[in-house]
Design a binder for these strands. Sequence first.
DNA 1: TTGAAAGCGATACCAA
DNA 2: TTGGTATCGCTTTCAA
Lengths: 341, 341
Amino acid sequence: MAVTLKELAEAAGVSRATVDRVLHGRGHVRPDVEARIWQLARELRYQPSPLGRGLVKSARGAKIGVICQFTETPFMKMVLSGIEQVREELRLMGAELLLDAIDSYAPARMLTSIDEMLKEGVQGLALTPGNTLDIRNKIQEVIAQGIPVITFNTDISGTERLCYVGLDNIRAGQTCAGLMASSLRGGGLVLPISGYRWHNAHDQRMSAFQETVQSAFPSLQLLPVTWCHDSDRMSQEIVLDTLRKYPNLQGVYVAGNGQSGVCRTLRKAGRAGKVVVICYDLTEQTALELERGGIDFLIDQGAWEQGYRPARLLYDYLILNAEPKRTFYYTDILIKTRYNL
Amino acid sequence: MAVTLKELAEAAGVSRATVDRVLHGRGHVRPDVEARIWQLARELRYQPSPLGRGLVKSARGAKIGVICQFTETPFMKMVLSGIEQVREELRLMGAELLLDAIDSYAPARMLTSIDEMLKEGVQGLALTPGNTLDIRNKIQEVIAQGIPVITFNTDISGTERLCYVGLDNIRAGQTCAGLMASSLRGGGLVLPISGYRWHNAHDQRMSAFQETVQSAFPSLQLLPVTWCHDSDRMSQEIVLDTLRKYPNLQGVYVAGNGQSGVCRTLRKAGRAGKVVVICYDLTEQTALELERGGIDFLIDQGAWEQGYRPARLLYDYLILNAEPKRTFYYTDILIKTRYNL
DNA sequence: TTGAAAGCGATACCAA
DNA sequence: TTGGTATCGCTTTCAA
């Protein structure tokens, strides 16, 4: 059995309140007593019980805010299910989770949403920031007010956010390069398709892919990158175009959305299963394509975890005084094939 | 804020004790009162707080036993680190975890260990069973005494264990077949090496691999299975032998241990990086081989999770009255390459 | 500078 | 069949 605060107090010959003051550095304790208590705490390996602590704090009715963008995408829907899960868990612990699900990319909307959250009195904030100056400033402002911020799914530089929860897009891009190379041992022509030019994550995935291919797998020949704006229609046209010019196309790498468009076109052209397709984000659609053989490999980012973890970390930080252990909570780079869905 | 038992009691116009009796079906409550309370509980969506419950139960000093075999293997060492983590967490919750780490395969030792655990008065038991009649009977005996049992890493049929935590070895074998095929698109000769004949997990991984190759990838040509008894020395000889007879060997699939022996031999023969190697279990050694290119793909079974989860499930079951949600807690089939370690 | 005591949510025992 | 009450570990007034 773990040592309790009560036992520690008895051992030190003082009251629990005094021990509490010492442990939380609240002052108003005679220095020698303070030293003695710290000493004993170490010796007895005292650690506060999260149960007791959580129970007390539950009164306060802590509020945690979560702001989410692009919620119309299948990927974000899975993130939302993680959020719902943690919301329920927090409810049982007496805390409330305020969610604002923004259904598209709207930087201005994000700013007003942050303000609303502040007005509601949230004590911590998790969000998927766009990479703009406005947002960066606003985040710094929030943090300056003593409200901790966690970013997820996409990160933002130059702020003092507590930590980031999401994919390591650079390693993910490298991983895809490795998969492409091992599938095309004899070499071949590969078409790289990205989503948006301004999208941090897409960019990192793509550059890492390109660099790894060029440095480690020279037998693969890369076509120039194209951007499909996360649209199936556009990716469809891009693939169609490419097939016309290069009938010997061997691989397609999709760093953003637009996966289905690629698969559809290859299937129509009778090249499904022949051309190696590697892309991101496990959803119902892409799972189906994996099973049909339209997609060979897929990188899953652990969507659920990205929804669950940030609010959980905020709760631990605010209520249990437990700092996040790392600045980057990278979700696993999960390689999916039709056999390990 | 969630509804508390106290609020529920007030709403029903009875004492908290009465509500408690109803909720736990202890009887001694007038039927109409009971009905009313259930009704209200539903309406107010009452759910007991794990915090409050855990706090009360922490007095009892619950004991949970964990028995682990083969603890000398690197894989099991990682399982042990998961066990240590949960042991610490449970300690903070007031429960004690008793661990018996058996360093080899010793069915008789397992039986005596179970008896010792019972004598210590554990209220729940997690173990890695051997697949023998003795063990099966003993497990049933334990369960008959009202002590729940969870199996992990390897399962055992014909018992009423609460659930199994571990890999889905059949899907894992299929996944490896898919990886081998995508790496050898032109087809090729593949050597399948298993560990022990009697080992359930090895067996499943191997048969699933064979069946999938035969039915879905006829261009791959499988040599007969060999068993290396989890020994690097033996796997070394097997590969050496095979290379002599079949210099055109293209792939090796290792379902058990002996990975290093395979890599070493291929490297000496100058075939490293040419022959596709697929195997199991992420350890320091195998991670090194992945990075060096000696192993192409590796299936990681989430060793840490296999140590952590079982005891955690038992705690939730015993203390929080939360039944495991599933009978099979399959850990993710994590495909590892040198890029996503 | 210190300690006593109430209370968080749930359980269990004893008394009514 | 019921309710009162102590208890778990911790935090937080309030009073000394």
